[in-house]
Design a protein around this nucleic acid. Structure first.
Lengths: 120, 120
DNA sequence: GAAGGTAGGTTCCTTTTCTGAACGGAGGGT
DNA sequence: ACCCTCCGTTCAGAAAAGGAACCTACCTTC
């Protein structure tokens, strides 16, 4: 189960930063992680729900969920025994993301109108 | 001056999302962008200041600053004429990031203790 | 007036990460 | 037996990031 990662892990660099914002970015500093957390707040909890909602590749989703569990933001729990299946639930640490998420939501709502995809 | 970017631009995908958090991520959805904004709040404004503070490569810093200006979060202004030099200042849109940034700071402060780098 | 320094980038090559699509495993339904 | 669901993993190729060197324009020192 050992994930071998390259030596130069850019996520870990930020985890040692003096600034709490930088340390927060060591968890959510990529395109998808925060959106997974958002989906959890919206009641989603299963792999395929995230995958469908976000359109992220299964590969990366798997990695991000592992990181979030490792970071203590999500918990991986079995929700079915006979076909053994797990889902992901916010921990207290994850739920404490609410204010930051609301801050980002408000900013996006005020300053980022929906840009149409570049379809002809 | 035309920056040619590949067709599959993941930043733009999020800009068309229904969710304001996702649209916010279309601007700050990477490791560095939000930290540049943070540095601006801390009074930094020049290329080399960001570079020294963040340790990001000049290549990427240059790209992120351009994106932030394009997105209307920062303004690029000349601060010296004879050696023509520019710096980067927060716009109103950028300053409106404060609540989200504070939310992230609080979360990081509460939940992310400084992790020592893996030095022997 | 050449040598070296400063500020703000750009260019080039290598390393790392992400995507896209296929595959796997463990069970369920018919 | 065969296909379906869910939760992933694997692999090749594309994109992005890292690292170091280089460039431009001006200024200072010799």
């Amino acid at each position: 189960m050992e994930r071998s990662r390259p030596q130069t892990n850019r996520w870990d660099d930020l985890a040692a930063d003096w600034c709490p914002v930088a340390r927060a970015m060591s968890v959510i500093g990529d395109r998808w992680t925060l959106l997974i957390v958002r989906d959890c707040f919206l009641g989603k909890s299963r792999f395929d729900q995230f995958q469908t909602s976000l359109g992220v590749t299964r590969h990366i989703l798997s990695d991000r969920l592992k990181r979030l569990v490792e970071a203590g933001v999500l918990e991986r729990n079995p929700y079915s025994q006979k076909p053994l299946r797990y889902d992901y639930q916010l921990t207290d640490k994850g739920r404490d993301f609410a204010p930051a998420l609301v801050g980002l939501k408000d900013w996006g709502k005020r300053h980022m109108p929906i840009r149409k995809p570049a379809a002809g």
